[in-house]
């Protein structure tokens, strides 16, 4: 069968993860509606979507279409005015579009406090050190949050979302403002989380997430957010990218499930 379209398929996805995609309904949004005040216009209405564990979803839509609101509802930091969200994992990481740095606390102290707030206890310093190394935060830890540049603040915002391995990672424009080293780290972070069975939702105007071969695409438009055909944004990369064939050995009883799963992502699996 052909590989996933796109230049860099997440080739290392574990069998466990594939099974999770088939069986675990993950996070479910049912009839979700969002507005910021009783007399405010609706931002989103009647949104019903599901995000399986281990899946990567790309959230698309023009500016103001409600992507960030959708991500906030998904992360659990915004209560929908109607509808409900179920199946949200216990540990959720959320990196907002703009990390708010307006505090005098040192970046290192802030991350340490967040790690402890996540219940890491004695492992808090270790977790901060790990993310500091991965995102190149070393020199920033001793700087007050209020004095960080936009890009540096974004790094802190990303790091705090990763201190405890999240079952759901929500990234709102994660590449925005990051330097080259941190930008390169984001795909590895996404791969790591999905490999571990966590779900990842990414809104990204720079379309870098497309290179990660997302499993799903949610498109926000006209107060609606719907599951769109993930292959629909693939043709460009598919045309120019290399193709390869992957053989998958699955139990006979799961063949139909796997075929359905792969066809749902625009692939053309064959059996023999």
């Amino acid at each position: 069968m052909p590989a996933a379209p796109g230049g860099a398929p997440r080739e290392h996805r574990s069998p466990l993860c594939v099974r999770a995609l088939q069986q675990d309904v993950g996070v479910e949004l049912s009839g979700v509606a969002v507005r910021y005040g009783r007399r405010s216009p609706w931002v989103l209405q009647d949104v019903t979507l599901s995000l399986p564990s281990g899946a990567l979803v790309e959230v698309t839509g023009r500016n103001g279409a409600g992507k960030s609101s959708l991500l906030r509802v998904l992360a659990g930091v915004l209560r929908p005015a109607a509808g409900r969200v179920s199946g949200r994992p216990r540990v959720v990481g959320w990196a907002p579009e703009r990390f708010p740095p307006a505090q005098r606390a040192l970046a290192g102290d802030y991350l340490l406090a967040m790690a402890r707030a996540r219940g890491l206890g004695d492992r808090a310093a270790l977790a901060v050190g790990r993310e500091a190394e991965r995102l190149g935060l070393g020199d920033l830890l001793g700087v007050p949050l209020a004095e960080l540049s936009k890009g540096s603040a974004q790094k802190i915002g990303l790091a705090q979302a990763l201190l405890a391995p999240p079952g759901l990672l929500v990234l709102d424009e994660p590449w925005s403002g990051l330097d080259a080293g941190a930008r390169d780290a984001v795909p590895d972070i996404v791969k790591e989380i999905t490999y571990q069975g966590g779900a990842v939702a990414v809104a990204d105007h720079q379309q870098q997430v497309a290179a990660l071969a997302p499993d799903l695409r949610w498109h926000a438009e006209d107060r609606r957010a719907v599951a769109a055909d993930v292959a629909a944004r693939a043709p460009a990369s598919e045309a120019v990218g290399p193709r390869s064939t992957v053989e998958v050995d699955v139990p006979a009883g799961q063949v139909d499930d796997v075929l359905r799963l792969l066809r749902g992502r625009g692939l053309s699996p064959r059996t023999r």
Partner: peptide, 15 residues
């Protein structure tokens, strides 16, 4: 004293 989004992040961190 805490910006709104940081309060949201704190709330997310403690559950």
């Amino acid at each position: 004293a805490e910006p709104d989004d940081q309060a949201l992040l704190s709330a997310l961190a403690v559950g």
